[in-house]
Amino acid sequence: MEILLQQIINGLVQGSVYALVALGYTMVYGILGLINFAHGEVVMVGAMLALSALTALLGWGVPPLLALPISLILAMLGCMVLGYGIERIAYRPLRHAPRLAPLITAIGVSIVLQNLAMMVWGRQYHAFPQLIANQPHLIGGAIINDIQIIIFIMALAIMAGLMVVVHRTRLGRAMRAVAENQHAAQLMGVDINRVISITFMLGSALAAVAGLMVSANYGLAHYYMGFLLGLKAFTAAVLGGIGNLRGAMLGGLLLGLIESLGAGYIGDMTGGFLGSHYQDVFAFFVLIAVLVFRPSGLLGERIAERA
């Protein structure tokens, strides 16, 4: 029983991070019909930027509780510039090209970012500094620590904020209008390039937050961390129904749970043959299962082929 509860807690915390990243995939897909495979690298860059800023600030004697929000904001700004640049340089020139072209470019951008990160930050793992006591709390025999609580609450708050922006503001209306019909949106006076840029920047800001969360949760950051994380968040977006914001959130949380429960019980299920380090395979079982049985995802409409 405690194990179950523990896996649920871990799953929800990890899932809330997947959800933040999945939102970035789904927002861009919704507006451009494009899968931005470089998005995982934006998460990585966010984590690295936050970590560098944090190390520098702490080194200058800035108190941790001030250094943390400053680093987060710097990482978000850095990632917003990065997201803007990726769209401008890699995708916009290919807006009317066949669909395969931007997909290949996305993979290229990924590789470039990984290699740049490796040159800047090296190949080694970077330890995330201990900032707060990170008290563990016991609930029902399971443990949740301060960082997990902060991650979960912050992720939920950010998602709620994003929903407000998308559904209750002029900008959000414009985003939904552009996602639905770019020509009609232009006829309303919407500068679609601006809206697309803002969408990339919003998604990248979420990615930066997620990057900081992951490295705080695991205590590590690494130039290669964006690859697997990005793939899993993409899976979460597909699970929820790509292009659907609520779907991305639901998919993220569900994937976190599936992974965590799977890892907790895979030993029992296979008679000890497979251990919890096989956790990563669950995401890909999920991806395959969704693609086979319900390609439009849990909340997605049938995906109409776009020209």
Partner: peptide, 30 residues
Amino acid sequence: VAMGMALVPEGRGVFARLTVAENLLMGAYS
């Protein structure tokens, strides 16, 4: 649009997934 030109396109081009009120607000965007 801001200069005062408006086109009601062939096939109408309403935003199907926006409400009627949101569609009208989009008209006032600029």
